[in-house]
């Protein structure tokens, strides 16, 4: 509902300013514009349509490895090593593993949000440049 959205926006603006946020936020229009840009970034992150990850040399480098795959490259001892890792070492360290996995998931989310924010800023910058040059749509 719009009035709740407006109330939330004003209350949050007030709270951030009270904590020492940028004085630019005193201008409600500026604050709303920033909030809109960040919300667009969050939405883009959730729908997985970012450009920035595509520009990495190897797309696999963009994601944290949240799942553990137990393997061995050794031809003869490999199956024994995998068995020991999976049935002895991993159960003993399961609690630590799951703690790390939770944090990897959170870090992955933070990484995605940051990439989305950078991309949103780049997009806004491009649009402002275009406006400043007075270009018309082709």
């Amino acid at each position: 509902m719009r009035e709740i959205g407006d109330d939330v926006r004003r209350a949050r603006q007030k709270r951030l300013l009270a904590r020492g946020a940028s004085s630019e936020y005193q201008d409600l229009a500026v604050y709303e514009r920033v909030e809109r840009a960040l919300n667009r970034a969050l939405a883009a992150r959730e729908s997985g349509v970012l450009l920035l990850p595509e520009l990495f040399e190897d797309a696999a480098d963009v994601r944290l490895t949240e799942q553990l795959r137990v393997t061995s490259h050794r031809p003869l001892l490999g199956p024994l090593i995998v068995f020991v890792k999976r049935r002895i070492i991993l159960p003993l360290t399961r609690t630590l593993f799951e703690y790390c996995q939770d944090n990897f998931r959170r870090q992955q989310q933070v990484n995605e949000v940051l990439m989305a924010c950078i991309e949103e800023l780049a997009l806004e910058n491009a649009l402002l440049e275009k406006q400043a040059r007075g270009e018309t749509r082709g």
Partner: peptide
């Protein structure tokens, strides 16, 4: 549950 957990890790892994 142990095999299911292993299978989940493998199925959701990058490779």
């Amino acid at each position: 549950l142990m095999r299911f957990r292993d299978a989940t890790d493998a199925a959701l892994a990058r490779e």
